[in-house]
Simulated scan of single mutants.
Amino acid sequence: MLKYDETLVVPDPTRSLADGAVEPWTYPSGRWYQRQLLKAARRHGLDVSRPYAALSEKERRLVYAGDGSFSGIQGFFEEVESYRYKLHVRVFLSRYRSQSPCPACAGARLKPAALAVRVAGLSIAEFTALTIDHAARVLADLKLSAWETSVAREILKQLNAKLTFLLRVGLGYLTLSRQTRTLSGGEAQRINLANQLGSQLVGTLYVLDEPSIGLHARDTTRLADLCRELAQAGNTVIVVEHDRSFMEAADHIVELGPGSGERGGEIVFNGPLADFRKATHSLTARYLCGRETIAVPLVRRTGRRHLLLTAAHEHNLKSVTMRVPLGTPAPSPAPSRPTSRPRGLTTR
């Protein structure tokens, strides 16, 4: 459920009420409410020069709920919500709301009757909180009676097939309850690919845009093998890629270039992989076959300063602490965890 988040309404708790701690009241439209807040604070003897973080629970409740003559933050949002038919008002309100677990179902989004049903000791909410890899192991170890097996045969068949396809495209680390909007582009493409593998269609054209982004080399090879399976089943698979494994797994290569952007736009090569390896006019082919290489630097730079990330939590990261050297290239290799890379953490 969505509710107004105190950390968004007061993004900097070190600021005082007088200094504009309540962020929506720092805009011209909220200045009247800011003046009412200061008047209410004087009536209740509240020191408006103290940081918001130093206010007691009672004082914060006054700011949020108000009193008889002051509507507080809650009353402010209730009044603004009456104008939700205006687009800019909806955008404004969305800036201060975040998702929070429902107090009735604790975020399970199911009725008590549905949560009361358990298989292998797990409710459906607990099962979907597992990773795909863990869920597959639970199903593999599931002990059922003959009658239960006959009832669940088709369901288990479909579940096992879906989980197997997701594992084959290298997504075993994702939880089943993971929201699709939090996935990377490569992860979303691989989920779609897993669905297509399960549908067993033929005569279909698939176009994949760099599906190997963020993948470990092991999983890239698996993904290339799956694309070949689709092709062998009677489909056409077009993959826009820069990865060597995909190029070497292709039947036909089309290279666009010779440069990027404005320096490209021409077909440099168009033909079978065997002919591509022999092409001398293709820079990509020369590097792919080892005729040209990039020399490894003899001397490596060492970082004099470091960025310290402490107890990082984001998607697949669980309380990770790491030191990143500054002023040097610092890759973070991992077995296919693109949505957990430090990039998002260092921008917070």
Rank of each mutant, 00 (worst) to 15 (best):
L197D: 04
Q200L: 14
Q196C: 07
A65C: 09
R218D: 09
R341T: 03
P112F: 06
F276R: 01
E23F: 02
P211N: 02
I294G: 08
L159F: 05
L309E: 01
K162R: 15
P11V: 08
R35V: 02
G271W: 13
E187M: 09
R50D: 02
Y83R: 13
F246D: 01
G72H: 00
Y33C: 02
L183H: 13
A285K: 02
G172K: 07
Y27M: 06
K318W: 04
G172C: 09
V237P: 12
T164A: 15
I253T: 05
S332A: 11
L62V: 15
G75R: 03
G271A: 11
Q74D: 10
R190D: 07
S56H: 10
P335E: 09
Q158G: 09
S100C: 13
C105F: 01
W25F: 01
Q36A: 02
Y206V: 12
E78T: 08
G186Q: 10
F92A: 02
D251G: 07
L174M: 14
T7M: 14
R84L: 15
A295S: 13
K58S: 10
R43M: 13
S199C: 15
A104S: 13
P13T: 08
E6K: 01
G327L: 05
A104E: 11
A113K: 03
T175W: 05
H88R: 14
N160C: 10
R263S: 08
S150G: 05
A136L: 10
R228W: 12
A53F: 04
A330N: 02
A104V: 14
R244Q: 06
P329M: 11
E154L: 06
E187P: 09
Q158H: 07
P103R: 08
V80T: 11
I132H: 05
R178H: 15
E6S: 01
A312F: 06
V296F: 00
R222E: 14
L317V: 07
L142P: 00
A40Q: 01
A231I: 15
K278E: 01
R137A: 08
T7R: 15
R118Y: 11
L2F: 12
T14P: 00
S82G: 09
H313R: 15
G172R: 07
S319N: 09
G265K: 10
H242Y: 04
V117N: 05
E78C: 02
V80H: 05
L110C: 12
R31H: 08
D225P: 13
D243H: 12
E266K: 00
A106D: 03
L87Y: 03
A188M: 14
T128M: 15
K3S: 11
L205E: 07
